[in-house]
Amino acid sequence: MIRYAANRVLGALGVLLVASVVTFSIFQLLPRVTKVDMAFYYTGRNTSPAQAAAVSERFGFDKPVWEQYWTWLSGIVTGRDLGDGVSAVHCAAPCLGYSFRQNRSVTEMLVQAFPVTLSIVIGAAVLWLAGGVAAGVIAAARRGSWFDRGSTVISLLGVSIPEFFSGMLLIYALTAGPSWLRWYSGGITYVPFTQDPVRWAVNLLPVWFCLAFLITAVYTRWTRAAMLETMSEDFITTAKAKGLRRRTVVGKHGLRAVIPTVVTLAGLDLGALLGGVIIVEYLFSFPGLGRLAYDGISTKDLPVIMGTTLFAAFLIVVANVVVDACYAILDPRVRHGG
C-alpha cells in the first residue's frame, strides 16, 4: 500500500515535469510565432530596440533554451534573482516568475488569488454535490414521477444556458432589478473570509449559485443514470428480498454503490475548477485565479500566464492523486487488489 502510494506520487511528479516542459516550450514558441521579441513581453511595447537588447541579455533570453528552462525550473525550487544593479529583484522560492508589469512575483499573485477561487469553488461544490446527487437519487427512485420529469427539464435548462448568460441575469436582478429582488444594491464584491465571514458568505452566494447551476444539472442527470443502473443490479434485488425498507434499499445500498464514482467525478471537476473559473470570476469581478489568468492574457504578461497555467496543471495532478486515494478507500476491491 505504501509502495503503491509512493509510486503514485512519483508518477504525479513526472506528469508535472512534463507539464512544465510543455508550458515552457509553448511560451518559448510564442515570440517566434508572433515575431515579437521576448523582451517586449516583459517590458511592454514602448521599449526601444536597444533597451530590448539589454533586457534580453539581462534576463538571459539570448541563452540556449534548455539553459533558460533549467534556470526557470530551479527557480521554482530555490528562488532566483532577476536582473542586476538597481533594478535587481529577488524572487523567493517557489519562484514561478516575476511580472515586471506589476512589479510583483507571480507566486505572490497566485497566493493572493487562490483563496478567492477556492472560496467560489468549495461553496459551489457543496451546492452542486448536495443538490445534484439528491435530485438524481430522488429522480431515479421515483422514475417517471413529476419530480423526475421536472428535474429532467431543469437539468436540460441548466446544461443549455451558458453561465455568462445566467450570471448576467443574476447580477442584473440582484443589483439593479426590481426592488424586492435588489438584495445586493451595494454591488457584489469579494470580502475575504478572515475579514468578515458573514459578508464573505453573503457576497459569494450568488457566485456559488451561478457556478453550481450548470454543474448541478450535469450531476443530477449523471447521478440519476448511475442510480437507475445500480437499482437493476442483483445486490439491490437481494436488499429488497431481505425485507429492507425502500428508503434503506435506495439510500444505503443504492447510494453507496454510486458514491465512489461521484467522488471521482467531483474530485476531477474540483481540480479543474480550482485552477480558475474564468467566466464567473470575470462576470462578478472577483480577483481569483481565472481573473488573474485573463488579465495576464489580455496584457500579454507572459510570466503570469505561465505561472497560472503551471499552477492549474499542478492542481489537476493533485486532484488525480487524491481521487485515486479516495477510490482506494471507498472501493474495497481496489484496496485489496493493490
Binding site: 445486490f235 437481494t238 428480498a241 465512489p260 474495497p332
Partner: peptide, 14 residues
C-alpha cells in the same frame, strides 16, 4: 427468503 444464481453480484461489493 431468497438466494440467487450469482452470489458475487448478489452481495453488495462495498
Amino acid at each position: 427468503a431468497m438466494i440467487f444464481q450469482d452470489p458475487l453480484s448478489s452481495l453488495h461489493p462495498y
